[in-house]
């Protein structure tokens, strides 16, 4: 079973002058279970919008998206929220950790939203990404590299079928970017989780065997 299937997906925004501006028009995109791929595209090419559509944060105008066998485009908002909590992990460029929570609590949070908090697994994930000894640190007490490690652990918290990473190294220096990307790929591989990374960074793209060009996929 594919971790991700995208078919005839369309999304347009309405400009202030009322004109509909197509942003995403992807005919076919598939990612096998446990597979890893990078999606390259320049800024403003619709990469983030595509990820938000796959995650069910945005609703598609047309087409279908299937994540781990469940068609997210056919689900109501509450169903999309549930699927996102259970089957999708998200890594953001700016990490988006909750500032009021410790590293451990940030990783526990997705589990709680799913209704199955597991402190031992959260701690183990943080240890796996090299954050042992800093479980009780708040984001402001961590370096950017460490924050991204916590974000990687959080994305894997609920054993998702698919991790979406939006410019995951965009805020890191070269050394930390390499480390973070390597870690993300390793952890996803160990968990049998498919990974889709969007980036415009050639060094990131160079680390993937499969690189999809958004300008070829996206007819918008």
């Amino acid at each position: 079973m594919d971790a991700l299937v995208v078919e005839r997906l369309k999304k347009a925004y309405v400009a202030p002058d009322g004109e509909r501006v197509p942003v995403v028009d992807v005919q076919d995109l598939r990612l096998a279970e446990g597979a890893q791929a990078a999606l390259k595209g320049r800024s403003g090419s619709g990469k983030t919008t595509l990820l938000n559509l796959i995650a069910g944060v945005l609703r598609a105008d047309e087409g279908r998206i299937v994540v781990a066998g469940e068609e997210i485009t056919a689900l109501p908002e509450a169903g999309r929220d549930r699927l996102r909590a259970e089957r999708i992990g998200y890594v953001f460029q700016t990490f988006n950790l909750l500032q009021g929570l410790t590293a451990l609590e940030n990783v526990l949070l997705p589990m709680m939203l799913r209704g199955a908090p597991d402190r031992a697994r959260a701690a183990a994930l943080l240890e796996r990404v090299g954050m042992n000894g800093r479980l009780d640190y708040r984001p402001a007490q961590l370096s950017v590299g460490q924050q991204q490690r916590v974000a990687v652990a959080r994305a894997l918290a609920n054993r998702p079928a698919l991790v979406l990473a939006d410019e995951p190294t965009g805020n890191l220096d070269e050394q930390h970017a390499d480390e973070a990307l390597g870690l993300l790929r390793d952890v996803c591989r160990e968990n049998g989780t498919a990974l889709l990374v969007v980036s415009h960074d050639a060094r990131v793209l160079g680390r993937f065997e499969r690189v999809l060009a958004l300008k070829e996929l996206n007819r918008a």
């Binding site: 929220d81 549930r82 909590a85 909750l98 939203l113």
Partner: peptide
């Protein structure tokens, strides 16, 4: 607003 957006992205329902 960002905190709420993150919660939603992690799977929190609007009602939550």
């Amino acid at each position: 607003r960002r905190e709420f957006a993150i919660l939603r992205a992690l799977g929190a329902r609007k009602g939550t």
